[in-house]
Every structure is written in structure tokens, then in C-alpha cells.
Design a protein around this nucleic acid. Structure first.
Lengths: 266, 266
DNA sequence: GAATAACTGTTAACGATGTTCACTAGATTG
DNA sequence: CAATCTAGTGAACATCGTTAACAGTTATTC
């Protein structure tokens, strides 16, 4: 499957009839797959997808090289989904309030994860999907990185929080990060900005990912999860790194406020 | 499979010949299963296990009710494994140095996870294994809780770090934790001890679990993972909660020292 | 010690999965 | 129109979890 599957690309050349149909089929494959995945009994299978579409299984091989690639295809769609959720939550607050935005976005991530456990597991706890060394970054993680990078830029502009200097960082980590500088996967990698900003981000991402993953897999009492206390505490950890200063009380308030809107997980 | 599978029980009544044989078969099933799981191609299957043992697949049903139960059986063994790893690392340091012990144990957890990715995923990122609400806690998590509980008791005795009072905790989280008090799953639940100690533990466990899971699934640049910088930074977060005081410089030193022994992950 | 029960394994079979191959009806293109 | 490419079908294979009927061995009981 070397052919590109256009997703967000603008329609430059008008697609021919066949190409349109093919794209429609692609979309339906993903749609049906995701519906089947949510449908309890965790049963995503090539054959089930084909049957649901009124086709036979081998026909799917005109679109996908293997089951693994089906999963990858779905993964891309899921990535777009979670990003959409985060964007919606972020946009509840104005751009000149990046503190509120990053908090809201984190809640968006959590909210999506708790209501889409199977899909979350597929994307964020799947050995097959976890990036191998050689492979170049997926479109999804790139968009993810860009989303956070943009907020962190505004956060930095506003709060000028402490960024570790190069010699404060672990030598190996520093060299590894600088090596990745040009790849575009590394968020918060703005011109003239010390790599320490990326470090601050990675720390925050680790905390967010870790807490949400723990909650999704219920590796702590479910009552504690439902209370959201663990998640709020984690957000405070992240907030401390950002030097919110005078905004801190307001944002702490908002931090619990935003959480109230969270729907009970499935 | 209602019959008990003795693992750590002392040999009270000498087992009959058949019982011994049966137990040996159980052990071999687990051993072979875990070998197959590590064997690349991630292919754990009932039939493969049976074939490897020179049996036919249906014979396994004399020992296991279903594939799911096979997984659970393996899960128990894995739990014992990771606990053993943590104990070995902990015991590099004397009991009167609980700060060093908790750091070492955390490294033991990470080390095991990075060298047993598939098994880690099975145990800690598996929707099927994640505890459901009604079910009573597994032997493994109980041992896990006891392990940490014991260290935290000594930590508390020595450093008397700050424990949030009941009214400092989230109300819902508090009630949920107190409700679990008698279940025995909740670590750090000593007589007369405020529930806040459990909260401190849970926070630390969340950070540890989160960081290790992130590293196992490579959701951050692999160079950063290899450097161990993220893990050390997380340990410092946890250390701050424990009020190491005068011991902090020494333990910070040790914190990087212990990490040096870590073998390169697979 | 013989009869009976319990246990541990076998073979055969069912349904479902991913995947390949040969083939065909229909659309696209020269 | 003829050549070609495309998107589908149906048959088949290997593998999987699982069940049912059966046979040999071991333990228990009269």
C-alpha cells in the first residue's frame, strides 16, 4: 500500500469517478471498523468489517494489505478524533488564556480516553503501533506535536516559566533531542528556543499520558478515578512547571471547574 | 476451574502422585506459555502451547477453562516475576535505608518492564485484565500492595513526610478510599494511620506506572528513554513528596547511580 | 484383588479468523 | 471497438478457540 490516502489534503485535481468511489470505500471501511470496535465484544475483524459492508473478506485486500494495516488505518482516524476532542475543549477559552486552554485540552484528552477505552488502547498501548526507531513519524503524532507546540509557545510568551538550560539537561537526553530537532516530531522546538522547552513539554506529556493510561486501565481504585482527584493533582504538577504566578489561583479554580463537565466514563 | 492452584502455599499435606504430576503440568503450561510469548511474533495460543508440550490442544482444557483463563494464569506468574525483580533490587540496600530501597524497587520495576514488553502489556495494559468493579482483588495485586505498603511504613517512620489530612483530600476520593479500607488492596493502610498516606502512595504509583508505560510503548523519543532522564526526573517528583531532608543529596546521587546498572532494553 | 470411579489424554469436528489464488463482470482508456 | 485495468466473487488453506465422544491409566472402594 504505497499509494497515499488523502485525508486533509485540499482537492487540487478533481477526482475521477473511480477515485471518488474508492475514497468513499476507504472512508466506509474506517467508519464501519470503528463502529464495530466500540460495539462491545471487542471484535474487530477483517471479515466482520467486510460482512458489515456487504462485501466478502478478500475484497478488502483491494484496499488494505493486511489486518495490521487496517489497524493502522483506523489508528489514523482515531488520532484525528482525539485531536478534535482536544481542540474543542481548548477552544472553550480564548487564545489569550493559554493556561486555561492547556488545562481544558488535557481534560479533552482524558475525556476522550475514558469514553473510548478500546480505541485508546489501540492507539496508545499497542506494541504494534508504538513507533519503531527507523520509521518516520506518522501524520497523527505530527499533528499532535503541532497542537501542543502551538499552545506551549503562547504559554511561554506569557508566563516565561523556567526552562532548563542545555547543561542542566541529561547529556544523552540532550543529544537525542537535538538530533530529533529537524524531524518535526519534537514539539516546542521553535527557532532560537533552547531545547529545554521541549523537555518541559515532554515531562508534562509523560504525566498526562501516564495518568490517563492508568485511569483507562483502571490500575487504581475506580472510585478515585471517578472523582478525578488524581487527574487534578497531576494537572497541578504540570501547572507548577509553568509558573502561572498571579493566574495560578484562578486557574486552580478553573481546573476543578472544567472537570465538572466531564461525563461519566463508560 | 474452581480448584485452587497452590503456588506459595507450604506443603502441608504431602501431595499424592497425581497431584504432583498435575502441578508439574500446570507449571510447564505457564513456563511454555511465557517462553512462547517472549519468542517474538507475539504468538501465544492454546494450540501452540499444547504442541510445544507434546500434547493436543483439547488436553489443555483439563487444566484451563478457556484461553482467557490461560492468560490469567500467566498473569499470575508474571506478577510473581515482576515482584521478584523489585524485591531483588530493593534488597541491594539495607532495611534501615528505605529511601534507597524504594528507589531501587522502582528501577527494578522499570528494568523488568523494559526487558519484558509483551508481558508488561499483558499485565498492565490489558482491558481484559484491568480490574472490574465487583471482582475481588487478585493475589498478585495484593502482594504488590503489601510490598509497597511495607516500604512506605518504614519510609513514614523515618521521614515523617507530610500526609494530607482527611479534609485536605477530595471528598469523593476520600470516601472511596475509606470504603476500600478493609479490602486489603489499599497499600499503606496501617492502623491509626490517616488515609492520606495511601493518597501519597497512589500519587507515586501513578507517576511510576505512567512513566514506565510511556517508556515501554515508546511514546516518546527512544533516545530519551534510553538515557533514563525521564525516569530519574519522575523519581525526583516522588522523592520530593517523601521529605528525604538531609538524605536527599545522598539519595539523589544514588538515584543516578542505581540507573547505571540498567541493562539496555530489548 | 476385582470392580468402579476419576483422571488425563486422544481424535474428529465446528465455526471463525487472516490470507492467497484463479477468475469474472464492469468501468476506463487507447 | 478492443485492450486494459479495477473491484469484486468463490474456493481453498492454515490457524485459532472450543466441544463432544471416546480410550487408557491411575486411584479408590467393596
Amino acid at each position: 500500500m504505497t499509494e497515499a490516502v488523502p485525508v486533509a489534503e485540499a482537492v487540487e485535481v478533481p477526482l475521477t469517478r473511480r477515485q471518488r468511489q474508492r475514497q468513499a470505500t476507504y472512508d466506509e471501511i474506517v467508519e464501519v471498523s470503528r463502529r464495530l470496535m466500540g460495539n462491545e465484544h471487542g471484535g474487530l475483524s477483517l471479515r466482520a468489517v467486510a460482512a458489515e459492508m456487504g462485501m466478502t473478506a478478500p475484497a478488502l485486500y483491494r484496499y488494505v494489505d493486511s489486518y495490521q494495516e487496517l489497524v493502522l488505518l483506523i489508528g489514523r482516524s482515531i488520532y484525528a478524533d482525539v485531536l478534535t476532542s482536544m481542540i474543542q475543549w481548548r477552544d472553550r477559552y480564548p487564545d489569550d488564556d493559554p493556561g486555561a486552554q492547556i488545562i481544558a485540552a488535557a481534560y479533552g484528552f482524558r475525556q476522550w480516553a475514558l469514553t473510548h477505552r478500546a480505541e485508546f488502547a489501540l492507539l496508545f498501548a499497542n506494541p504494534a503501533v508504538s513507533k519503531e526507531d527507523g520509521t518516520e513519524p506518522d501524520e497523527g503524532v505530527r499533528a499532535f506535536a503541532h497542537f501542543y507546540g502551538e499552545i506551549y509557545q503562547r504559554l511561554w510568551d506569557r508566563y516565561a516559566f523556567h526552562i532548563p538550560a542545555d547543561d542542566e539537561l541529561d547529556a544523552d537526553a540532550l543529544s537525542s533531542l537535538t538530533a530529533q530537532r529537524s524531524a518535526g516530531v519534537l514539539p516546542c522546538d521553535f527557532p532560537g528556543m533552547p531545547i529545554g522547552l521541549s523537555w518541559v513539554f515532554i515531562r508534562a506529556w509523560t504525566r498526562l499520558y501516564g495518568t490517563v493510561t492508568l485511569e483507562v486501565f483502571k490500575h487504581v481504585d475506580s472510585g478515585v478515578i471517578a472523582s478525578g482527584a488524581l487527574f487534578r493533582a497531576m494537572l497541578e504538577d504540570n501547572g507548577r512547571d509553568l509558573n502561572f504566578g498571579d493566574d495560578w489561583p484562578r486557574l486552580r479554580e478553573l481546573l476543578t471547574e472544567v472537570g465538572r463537565a466531564v461525563v461519566e466514563p463508560s
